[in-house]
Structures are given as C-alpha cells and as structure tokens.
Amino acid sequence: MGVIVTSEQVQRPRTAAQRRNPYGGTTSAVVARMPGPTRNFLVEVGGMLALLGRVLVVTAKHPAEILRPTLDYSYVTLRRCWFPVTVALGGFIVFLSVAALVFFDQLGAVGIYPPVIMRVCIESFTVWAVALVLAGIVGASLTSELGARRVRDELDALYVIGVDPVRELVAPRVLTAIALTTLMSFPAVALSLLTTQLAGAYYASESSAEFYHYVFDNLAPMEMFLAALNCLIAGVIIGTVCAYKGMNAGGGSEGLGKAVNQAVVVSFVALWMTQTLYTGITQGIFDLGRFR
C-alpha cells in the first residue's frame, strides 16, 4: 500500500515558502497586526492600488494592443448605457438649474445667476453627478460583467491559457471607465448650461444673449481644465474600484450581487470624499470665484 516517500527534498527547510509568506515584509507584518476591519480596509485599498498599477504598466507596455478592445468596450458600454445615463444625468441637471433659479429669484438677484450656477456646475455638481451616475450605471455593469467571468471561471481559464486577464479584460475596462467619465463631463457641462439658460428664459424671462455673455465672460480655461482633471480622478476611482470588486467577486449565489453592491457603495463613498477634498483644495489654490 502507498505511503508517500519522504525524500530529502521534502524535508529540506522550506525557505521558498517562507520567503513567499504574505506577511513576511515589514509593511505586511504591520498590516497583519492591525485589528480586523482596519486590516481588511488596508488590504482592499492595497489590492485596488496594485490592480491600478498593473493596469497602467500593462497599458504602457502594450498600448496598441489595448487601444482596440478599449474602443470596442467603450462602444458597447455607450450603446448599453447612453439612455439611462442621459435620463439620470439630464434629470439631475434640469432639476439643479431650476432649483438654482428659484433661489436667485427669491433673492431678487437673477442677474448673478448665470455665472454662479455655471461655476457651481463646472466646479462641482455636474462633475459630481457625472461621477455618481457613471459609477452607478457604467461601474455597476462593469463589475457585474467582470464578476460573471470570475464566477464562471473564465478569468482562471485565461490564466491557464497563458493570457493575462489584466491585459485582456481589466485594462480595457478600467480605461473605458476613465475615458467615458472624462469625456462625459463635456456634454454634461454643455447640457447644464443649456438647461440653466432655458430655465432662466422660461421662469425668469432672462434673455439668452445676456446669459451666455455672463457665462463666457466668467469662464476661465483653468475651470475647464480642473473639471476635466476632476473627472479623470473620478474615472480612475470608478474603474479601479469596480474592476477590483469584479475580479474578486466571491462564489455562491450572492457573491456576485454583493460584489456589485459593494462596488457601487465603495465608489460612491470614495467619489464623495475625493470630490469634497478636490473642491476644497482647488478653491483654496485657485481663486476661482472671482467675477470678471
């Protein structure tokens, strides 16, 4: 009968495994001693940063190979999501312009309405709404798609075939999230201007010429740049969080649902916090509120 032979190889000190010990390094040893929730948080953040790093490295190494699937996936995503994104974002923007108008109407100061609402939109609220809507719609669908592949073992199958899933699947998706969030900010800002103007025209009989005169008088290139940068950051957060959650979706019947749920909640919290920080920092550095 068979008892496994213990050869000398088997008994030698298993240094390789010790070197691979995930809690071997100093940082890891510190993390390992943290209380449970803190440790989980750090491990998650670390995993997300590592994933983002790998996406960037892979993209830098094989830009041409990744461009094509990125474009394909962007197209697919746009085709699937344009309608809900338009409704969710458009609804919010229409609502916001009417609310702002009501406020200035109350103060009897409809005159300062265009530049102020334009700034509020560009500097924060429109961008924020874009980020949240894309996290909730594009991000969630990204997580559920990647997570479905994880649950069906497709990611493992890619590994076994010798194809890096980060390069094949994750990088194009993260880049798509970044690109869509950044690009979506421009039509969204344009739409906010349009609805603000229409609201002004309908509810306060403000002339469109005066409106746009005020707006473009007060719009600095720096504002557009900062808005785009803001969206870029939001896109990186959405792409990374949602891809990470999808890649690490648990098994079982609720694993994938949980992953999508967490992806949305985590990206909401992260976006919300970075948004406040970003506004605080940029407003502190650049004197954006100045009227011209």
Binding site: P84, A88, I137, S144, A148, V151, G255, G257
Partner: peptide, 18 residues
C-alpha cells in the same frame, strides 16, 4: 444563477438612479 443576481443588481441600480 449567480450571474443573474449580479446583472439584476446592476440593473436595479441603473433604473433606481434614473
């Protein structure tokens, strides 16, 4: 299956937001 739950989660998010 699990994939359906994931898809429905994403769908409910989409419809709720809109």
């Amino acid at each position: 299956g699990p994939v359906g739950v994931g898809e429905n989660t994403a769908k409910s998010m989409l419809i709720s937001m809109a």
